[in-house]
Design a protein around this nucleic acid. Structure first.
Lengths: 172, 172
DNA sequence: GTCTATAATTTGATAGAC
DNA sequence: GTCTATCAAATTATAGAC
């Protein structure tokens, strides 16, 4: 049940943000009452922290499974994790919207969101080092992909994500 | 008073998003009661629409004042509008956070946010055409700048914005 | 673990006096 | 234009039964 709640939370928060999701919404999604959600996550911030922790962990595991023998193929795989969220799952990266909301988030949650971005850049750093790659800068890659998700969603233009991905891959 | 309310709304919404701002917050900011805010903006969406309209109009006016005799200087100016919001005003571009919240916004407001991005790209399109510039693609430029604001804010690293700006300007 | 019930607060919004 | 007063709904959160 804990995991089912997190599943529901991920879909809802990625769609409308942390501030616009209520325990009652999530309870209804999984077929219980809101008091039961509080049993698993006493405070809303507990839910947010657990969700981002799980999300970061899964993302890290996926990144670590990218075959790095060929640099370009690996980078295509990296970009695809972002593009797929937008185009296949039709939702933003969880941390794109949480990043935008960052100032209004509880401190513990904000720290977790920061950790997600740090993890992505750390992966790119070691990947770049292994292949002697210099550009585009890892922070710029992550920022561009997150921005493309947001602008692409807001304008309902999938082409935005494709254009940005193509530009990043041009260096490879 | 109408303008004072919009000023307060811009600061608050840029910081915490549309969903996390209440009429009572804004009323307190400008020294009136929430009923008075409702006099100027009957519904919350009216306030959001008016705010983005004003924001887009001002941004457009500022862009139109960029001297385009030198392409590089003009592009530096364009990027600076984003960078200044983040570093000088210490706030996100209003439409960065509204873009992230887009799915949960009232339809009229969502359309206005979309219009902001369209306007930015339209300006870049004519600028590119005038100078025979091909890259980076206008949608990629806007997406990258918005993403850099969000990731830079979330990780409290001003360097993110600087890195992305430098990469965009490298083509000029 | 889930429920009912409820407390305490906040929210968007309106009525009507001044 | 602003106020007081208020409503109806939603929110986070808790107490206690089962």
């Amino acid at each position: 049940m804990r995991d089912k709640i997190l599943d529901a939370a991920q879909i809802r928060i990625a769609a409308v943000g942390y501030n616009a999701v209520s325990f009652r919404d999530l309870a209804a999604d999984v077929g219980v009452k809101s008091a039961s959600v509080h049993y698993h996550f006493p405070q809303k911030s507990d839910l947010g922290v657990a969700l981002v922790a799980r999300y970061t962990e899964r993302f890290q595991t996926a990144l670590d499974q990218i075959d790095q023998t060929d640099a370009r193929t690996a980078m295509v795989g990296f970009c695809a994790f972002y593009a797929d969220a937008l185009i296949v799952d039709q939702s933003l990266c969880l941390c794109a919207i949480l990043g935008a909301e960052t100032i209004s988030l509880p401190a513990e949650l904000r720290a977790k969101v920061e950790g997600f971005f740090d993890m992505n850049v750390a992966w790119l750093d070691q990947f770049y080092a292994r292949h002697g790659i210099k550009s585009p800068a890892p922070w710029d890659v992550v920022a561009s992909l997150e921005g493309a998700m947001i602008v692409g969603t807001a304008t309902r233009k999938n082409a935005v994500m494709e254009t940005t991905t193509a530009r990043i891959l041009a260096d490879f």
